[in-house]
Nucleic acid binder design. Structure first.
Lengths: 222, 222
DNA sequence: GCATTTATTTGCGTATGCATTAAATAATTC
DNA sequence: GAATTATTTAATGCATACGCAAATAAATGC
């Protein structure tokens, strides 16, 4: 799983992502290739390659002569992203239900739900977020469409970026896990329609919460 | 629209795409970076950058020391791609309907439908395919979600690749345009649900036709 | 002959330098 | 003083070179 030798190019992708998520490289800021190269202690070549990769993942934008700009996320962007997640994840839920997985196949999903319960009980928001990510990633995996998995992964990254800010601005997501259980039950029961529609409603609800939160707090970006 | 000066890197992206779509670089084939550089008459640096871009668009795969592999598309891949298109396009159709566009806003869409009619009347499959592309691209544009537009664009590229083969293997898509008109009407009438479901059915039908065709002809790739 | 080790080749990852060209600044004209 | 033009600056795009590791060929041992 973990490679001993990681190429500088790959390391640059990872490190830059980290720094973007952590806010070290803040949304809207511009950075020269040489500056980033210096930061990561390597030459421009691998950072350039990393930057191209991250650009096609929608995390930043290349503006020749003005540096690479870390893309800010507006509330509208967030709404767009949630719409993509809603459509593709609920499709995955439907597919997962149709696949007639047994409870063992769904163990990971169940574990994630349990972990969310525990996290909520302990008021541990970070643990909750981590388990929530796991739930959604596993759901998509069960949907067995690698392209959907890839797209959802990218979009989830963006959401994660914004969640860092919003997570502590709202009440504990206690009700959210009821939705998750409903989706789980529908998948276990092989009810594709139910799985799909329940998950859709879940995501749309999450979307409205986040977007309203961002707008209410006048957060124009990140 | 057309830049006078196109960087070698951009040119490499375009030319490689062309050659992949045209089959000049055939699915499953491997090519060394230096070979491609030679082919495009430039150094390895810009082709490497282009190749990274194309990799993240899912057209090829980088396999160190074995060359870049033009990714073959199996019938299963095609099914996955159509599922993504189905979900995201029907969402776009719903959004377009909710946006209450007037007939002028929808002129492009209407034009594409008309052009498809004409192409079918003239049995001009290439013209039909071109107009069909235009219809779907415009639909997604009207949905006003740039991320969806981007994803659909990428996936459509892949479909286009396969359609080159399948287009001439099946009867004229005479009925297809009835679907398009229904979607158009629903959007004009502001009926989001109808637009969504009609388009969904349309895409799912197209998917089953293509996938069956590929399987029947034992086409394992491209 | 087969397997294992050693030698050789070759493609890739990365650093580096240079030419290009866009942006920024200074200079000149009206 | 404003606006246009000339000059400077500097970031990028690209070619090139080189070392390393992987793949292949050769050689040695059994």
């Amino acid at each position: 799983m973990s490679e001993k030798t990681l190429s500088n190019s790959q390391r640059a992708v990872h490190e830059l992502r980290e720094r973007i998520f952590s806010g070290d490289l803040s949304a809207g800021s511009d950075h020269l290739e040489s500056e980033l190269a210096n930061l990561l202690d390597m030459s421009r070549t691998p950072v350039r390659e990393a930057v191209l990769t991250l650009e096609s993942q929608g995390l930043l934008e290349l503006r020749p002569r003005k540096g690479v700009r870390i893309l800010p996320l507006s509330p509208d962007d967030m709404a767009d992203i949630y719409d993509v997640l809603t459509e593709l994840e609920s499709h995955s839920a439907e597919r997962a239900a149709e696949a007639r997985y047994d409870e063992q196949d769904l163990a990971f999903l169940a574990k994630a739900i349990d972990d969310m319960d525990k996290a909520i009980a302990a008021s541990d928001l970070d643990a909750w977020a981590e388990a929530d990510d796991r739930f959604h990633a596993e759901l998509v995996r069960l949907g067995r469409n690698s392209r959907i998995a890839g797209i959802v992964g990218m979009m989830s990254d963006q959401v994660r970026r914004a969640r860092m800010t919003t997570l502590f601005m709202r009440p504990l997501p206690t009700k959210s896990n009821e939705d998750h259980r409903q989706v789980y039950d529908a998948i276990r029961d092989g009810d594709g329609y139910q799985a799909r529609e329940t998950h859709r409603a879940h995501r749309q609800h999450a979307k409205s919460i986040i977007v309203e939160l961002l707008q209410r707090h006048r957060l124009k970006f990140l």
